[in-house]
Design a protein around this nucleic acid. Structure first.
Lengths: 235, 235
DNA sequence: CGATTAATTGATACTTCTCAAATCCTGTGG
DNA sequence: CCACAGGATTTGAGAAGTATCAATTAATCG
């Protein structure tokens, strides 16, 4: 798991500017650099485990992760995603509560572990950093409200159409135009909040209606306006 | 709307200790006290309006509110509640985004308006206050994850049973043992994420099964273990 | 190249929504 | 205080949306 990224100082880090550490001074970045540990998580590996108390956060250098909770009878619910530049575990650290969800790597993921204490030290020194953390948490809170409303009011069909658009917005597309994230049908179902079979049936319908092109786990959106209409997406 | 609570200084405020201002020094409390405006909202009055940019936050002196979003075809989704001691509008202020939801008084509510600038001034001075704000936002984020999982995986029947228990935990009970909050059937439906008629039918079933006693909008929980079992509530 | 896991399809049952109609409240003005 | 209008609540019937179970086929990984 350890890797040689440890040689890289944080102020030289290529993703520094898109992380919440972008307001830190050189000295403050050195505090992080001196205490961080860089690791690699293999695809499918659990990075943090629901119910545990983490000793710090991870900053994603490169990769994609899912945040997921255990629901009824062990069924997984995917709450959100994280990608390059995002911080993992901050919710638990800042609320001083156990992890409310697990985090699993969707592909091989490089991340830097920053210990709890150094994080709090910087919060104490740098109110801009504190504000940035608040901004992120409060933004996520707004997103959560939107997800709650969708789950409560939209049909599965509507939610799936919207989710395809959200996946494209979140992860972008590959050279071939496919969504740049590989999810099983079951994962899509656990994201949308439905049964795997329903997801498969609806994806097939969308394919029949020429809204998407399916090739195994590769999904290409070819009629986004129509998907947006089906999903009641207005923005 | 204005009221004479303005005479009360914040350091003497009876609810100060249960608010996030409880870490402020006397001087810092005076900054708030000098800039605050106390107001009263009538039952049903909109305190903040979805999409607007608030100029500050409200601290609830006394009362109960609902936070609600507009969903499909104007249907209301209730996201959460607020009560005495809670802060309103902080999500929008701290994320620098328009309000993601409206806030409406469920009963006559006394609240103090604290302007945006003074809030940021204190954040700059007092990292314990910043941490407290982060703690609240991150705690709410964990709650939101739980709500998302419930909406995605539980049946309406399960969600309603759980919601009754949550309402009792949130608002407590009156002398007669009823939930200390008055909601229409439609509001309960908008909270659980279902149709009004479904809520009515299920409440009637719970009444038949002697789990609750209904008298108009007064609801008394008489068999909480059974409700917890129906709602798959384990904690 | 098996062995396992994932994806697909069909049939059926169940939950929940929608529409319609009737009754009950509640606040308000006379 | 009463009558009344308008909203809230309740109940029924039928339609629609989803889940579940079972069986088959396809894909993937040592």
């Amino acid at each position: 798991m350890e890797c040689n990224d440890n040689n890289v100082r944080c102020h030289q880090c290529p993703v520094k500017d898109i992380t919440s550490f972008n307001t830190l001074s050189k000295d403050q970045l050195d505090v992080i650099a001196d205490s961080k540990t860089c690791v690699v998580f293999k695809k499918g590996q659990i990075i943090m485990h629901e119910g545990n108390k983490p000793n710090g956060v991870y900053c994603i250098q490169n990769g994609k992760c899912k945040t997921h909770k255990l629901g009824i009878e062990g069924k997984e619910q995917i709450i959100r995603f994280a990608k390059t530049g995002d911080m993992l575990g901050y919710r638990s650290i800042l609320s001083d509560e156990p992890l409310s969800a697990s985090i699993t790597a969707l592909e091989d993921t490089h991340a830097c572990f920053v210990p709890r204490q150094e994080l709090f030290d910087i919060i104490d020194l740098n109110s801009r950093f504190s504000l940035e953390l608040m901004r992120i948490a409060c933004h996520e809170l707004g997103e959560a409200g939107r997800i709650i409303t969708n789950l409560a009011q939209k049909t599965v069909r509507e939610r799936l159409a919207e989710m395809l658009l959200i996946l494209e917005k979140t992860f972008g597309i590959t050279d071939e135009g496919n969504l740049d994230v590989s999810l099983t049908r079951e994962e899509i179902a656990n994201l949308v909040g439905t049964a795997t079979e329903s997801t498969i049936r609806l994806l097939s319908e969308f394919k029949e209606d020429k809204l998407i092109i399916l090739k195994g786990r590769k999904i290409k959106l070819v009629n986004k306006p129509k998907l947006a209409k089906i999903g009641n997406v207005f923005d």
